[in-house]
Simulated scan of single mutants.
Amino acid sequence: MTTIIASPTRYIQGDNALAEIRRHVEPLGKKLLILASASGKARVENLVAESLAGSACSAHYELFNGECSRQEIQRIRAVYEQTGCDLVVGVGGGKIHDTAKAVAYYVHCPVVIVPTVASTDAPCSALSVIYSESGVFEEYLFLPTNPDVVLVDTGIVSRAPARLLIAGMGDALSTYFEARACARSCATNCVGGKPTLAAQGLARLCYDTLLADGVQAALAVREQACTRALENIIETNTYLSGVGFESGGLAGAHAIHNGFTALPETHALYHGEKVAFGTLTQLVLENADKAELATVLDFCRTVGLPTTLADLGVTDTSRDRLMRVAELACAPNDTLGNMPFPVTPASVCAAIVGADALGRARAGR
């Protein structure tokens, strides 16, 4: 049995860390293609310009169209080739990161990831999640290497909307439970090996840190206060969850998230918000310990993560619609097969209904 753990070459986190971007990118490339949203560009442009001033480095900004699709990857690839850049930098959230990583893979150049939010565990992984232009999950693009640098400026992240950090906690919440399921089934992780002890330990630390610091971090980010608890949760959402999911493995929660992309009304929610409900559904599917399930439900309710279908915006809960979700979640190219027991669309549909019922009961609805 071969075990594999994967991680970015370098992970840097701290207040005002972006002011030192030149030191970290200069060994990799001199002409940066920076992929960002309009708001992301506005948040980082001055800091990047000050850091690159007086050096041989220059930056070309390209605005992201909003979806990590095959079409967008090809568009950015063409921009890279036309501008003569030699380094891709993804500034923003998860879909920008995944697009930047995919472009760098296709043009054979280094990639630097600069999260402006801690809303997903995408920054550290050698993986891009590909969606259709309309936002429906299509496939995972597994990449041969992790990002060269992940640079997290916690001052910038702490000034992002609180909902984004909380969504990141929803994504991170799945890490331990999916890694645990993969360990029980001896499943292969996202990098083609069995989980190492280190990966399983990081996944557990991810969950423990969420329970220890998640509520305090959610309160702090609402006040834009970069406390120690918030720093810990930024690292949890970004690094512990990123290395933990990739090297620990994916199972039910993310597959169920992918299934929910079949319902257009869920597209308004963030990835981690849907993953949180996917985690609850996985635990119901497993018939998890009552105390554990109560702990997860209470954590989600306290920080503001969805625990019911209504929280996901799903008001039409007819069984044929939920079965569409379950069938997509059980697709052969997804990860529900990593659960340590046979799973069918019918059992997933039942677990979705059960998770919703538990969430409503816990909320007194």
Rank of each mutant, 00 (worst) to 15 (best):
T120E: 05
A100D: 02
A49V: 06
G94W: 00
G84L: 04
Q82Y: 01
V114C: 15
A102I: 03
D98S: 02
D98V: 00
E45K: 11
V107Y: 03
T83I: 03
G94P: 02
V107Q: 05
Y80M: 09
T83E: 10
G94S: 13
E50N: 13
L87E: 04
L47Q: 09
N65W: 08
E81Y: 01
E62W: 07
H97L: 06
V112M: 12
A100E: 04
D86N: 12
F64G: 00
R75D: 11
A53M: 09
G92N: 08
V107E: 12
D121E: 06
V88E: 07
A100W: 03
C109T: 15
G94C: 07
V112T: 11
V103Y: 10
A49C: 06
G93A: 13
S55W: 06
A59D: 05
V117F: 04
N65F: 09
S69Q: 06
L87K: 06
G92P: 02
G92F: 00
T116F: 01
E67C: 07
V91P: 00
A104Y: 00
H108P: 01
Q82I: 02
I96C: 04
S58R: 13
A118W: 08
T99E: 00
Q71N: 14
T83A: 06
E72V: 10
G54P: 11
Q71P: 01
E45H: 09
R70G: 13
H108V: 04
V48N: 12
C68P: 00
G66R: 08
C109K: 15
V103H: 08
S58K: 11
V91H: 07
R70Y: 08
T120F: 12
G92A: 07
C68H: 00
I76E: 02
H60C: 07
L52I: 15
G54D: 11
A49F: 05
Y80C: 10
S69P: 06
A78T: 11
A100Q: 10
L63D: 12
E72R: 12
S55H: 06
A53C: 14
V79T: 14
E67Q: 15
S69G: 04
L87Q: 03
G93L: 06
A53S: 15
I113N: 05
C68M: 01
E81I: 10
S69F: 02
N46G: 04
G92S: 14
T83C: 05
A56F: 04
A104N: 08
G84R: 02
E72N: 14
G84F: 01
S51Y: 11
N46D: 14
K95F: 05
L47M: 10
V88S: 02
R77F: 00
V89T: 08
Y80I: 02
E72Y: 09
V88C: 09
A100K: 01
S51W: 09
G84M: 03
A118F: 02
A102G: 10
G84P: 02
A122F: 00
A102D: 05
K101E: 07
C57H: 08
G54R: 05
V111I: 14
D86C: 03
T99S: 12
Y61R: 11
L63V: 15
I73V: 15
V112P: 01
A104D: 01
T99A: 07
S51V: 10
A104W: 01
A59F: 10
H97M: 11
T116Y: 03
G94A: 09
G90K: 00
P110A: 13
A118H: 05
V107D: 02
Y61A: 10
R75W: 11
Q82C: 05
Y105H: 14
